[in-house]
Amino acid sequence: MHISLTPELESRIKAKVESGLYNNSSEVIREALRFMDTHEEWILEIKLARLREQLKIGVDQLERGQGVTIESKEDLDSLFDAVRGDLRL
């Protein structure tokens, strides 16, 4: 595998190796990839937690009788338009 890096990135990798924390550039790259994987997992966990919060709010509203009745495609389109409008705020 061949990877092209900018001079700045090469310099940063070289500095990590020279710091003594890593034996070679491959270790730096592997650690960076592990960190990226961990970061992505963390972001997914946050998104999932937020979705669960939103679902709980919706279920609570339904249990209080605050649901919206959808009887037609037009009703559904209006609801989606309203939701999109809220998301743009």
Rank of each mutant, 00 (worst) to 15 (best):
E8G: 01
S4M: 10
F35P: 07
L51W: 06
W42L: 05
S19K: 04
E10S: 13
A82K: 13
K56P: 03
S26G: 13
V68M: 09
I43V: 11
S11D: 04
L62Y: 12
S11C: 00
I29L: 10
I46G: 06
E71I: 06
R84F: 05
D86A: 13
D75F: 07
E53V: 10
K47W: 05
G65L: 01
E40W: 00
L62D: 09
K14I: 02
S11K: 01
A82V: 15
T38P: 00
E10M: 00
V28N: 05
E10W: 02
S78V: 05
T69H: 14
L87H: 06
G85A: 14
D37P: 00
L21P: 00
L79N: 11
K14N: 06
L44R: 08
I70C: 07
T69D: 14
L62C: 14
E10D: 06
R34G: 01
L51H: 08
I3K: 07
I3E: 10
S4I: 09
L5S: 11
S72Y: 04
E74A: 09
Q54S: 14
L87E: 13
R52L: 14
D81F: 11
R50C: 10
Y22R: 04
M36V: 02
E40L: 05
M1L: 07
L55T: 06
L79W: 10
E41W: 06
Q54N: 15
L62H: 12
G85F: 09
D60N: 12
R52M: 14
L89H: 15
V17D: 00
I46W: 03
I70P: 04
L21H: 01
I13C: 03
A32Q: 06
D37R: 04
S72M: 02
L55Q: 05
W42P: 02
R12H: 04
E10Y: 09
E18A: 00
T6C: 15
H39N: 07
L44C: 03
